[in-house]
Amino acid sequence: MPTTQEYWLSGAILDVPALLQPAAHALLQSVREIKTYLADFPEDKLWENPFGRASIGFHLRHITGVLDRMLTYADNKGLTEEQFHFLKNEGNGESAPWSQQLIADFEKKVNQALEYFKNTPESILTEKRFVGRKKLPSTVIGLLFHAAEHSQRHVGQLLVTVSALKNQ
């Protein structure tokens, strides 16, 4: 498949239920776009906050963390102390990994999500799930779609930030 072909135009992903295909496509597209946008990005700008906006490093950590948390909630579990620690430190650039490690972490989490999708029967997609300490209502499909659309939203923000920082 040529890298210019968007995933949603590339056909079904093997073993992913039909109703989760759009979410799987969006997550794979996010990985591809991040790799493209950051191909020659200067490491010394990874944690800069241009115009008071979030850094590239934050976006990369945040989408990985949100995907992890949405999968946990979809699995009807609460967050662990490790997940709370990760959440608290998403924007912390001190002793942070370099961009290629952050990209690899997100890609690994996307691959875990795809495996989760493959093992999720369509019959449970409308089951209720709850988010956070306030136990806000959602469903399995709602959580999985939020993880995908949220990733795409942050990839768009990341692109703008990359463009701003490269042109400084």
Rank of each mutant, 00 (worst) to 15 (best):
Q5F: 12
Q5Y: 13
Q5L: 15
E6N: 15
E6M: 14
E6P: 09
E6A: 15
Y7W: 15
W8L: 09
W8N: 11
S10W: 14
S10P: 06
G11Q: 09
A12L: 13
I13T: 09
I13E: 06
L14M: 13
D15S: 14
D15P: 03
P17C: 12
P17R: 11
L19S: 14
L19V: 13
L19I: 08
Q21S: 09
Q21N: 10
Q21P: 11
Q21K: 10
Q21R: 10
P22Y: 12
P22G: 08
P22L: 03
P22D: 08
A23S: 12
A23N: 02
H25Q: 12
A26Y: 00
A26C: 07
L27H: 08
L27S: 07
L27Y: 04
L28E: 04
L28A: 03
L28G: 04
Q29W: 01
Q29A: 11
S30A: 14
S30W: 00
S30C: 08
V31A: 12
R32G: 01
R32I: 00
R32A: 13
I34D: 02
T36W: 00
T36R: 10
T36L: 05
T36I: 06
T36C: 00
T36D: 05
T36M: 01
A39Q: 08
A39I: 05
D40F: 01
D40E: 13
P42Q: 07
P42I: 09
E43F: 10
E43T: 11
D44M: 02
K45F: 01
K45N: 05
W47F: 06
W47K: 05
E48N: 03
N49E: 10
P50C: 03
P50K: 06
P50R: 04
P50S: 04
P50T: 07
G52M: 06
G52N: 06
A54K: 12
A54D: 04
I56D: 01
G57S: 08
F58G: 02
F58H: 07
F58E: 04
L60W: 03
R61D: 03
H62L: 01
H62Y: 09
I63P: 12
L67E: 10
L67H: 08
D68L: 12
D68V: 11
D68Q: 15
D68C: 11
R69F: 09
L71C: 12
T72C: 12
T72W: 10
Y73E: 10
Y73I: 08
A74C: 08
A74N: 08
A74K: 06
N76T: 14
N76D: 15
N76K: 15
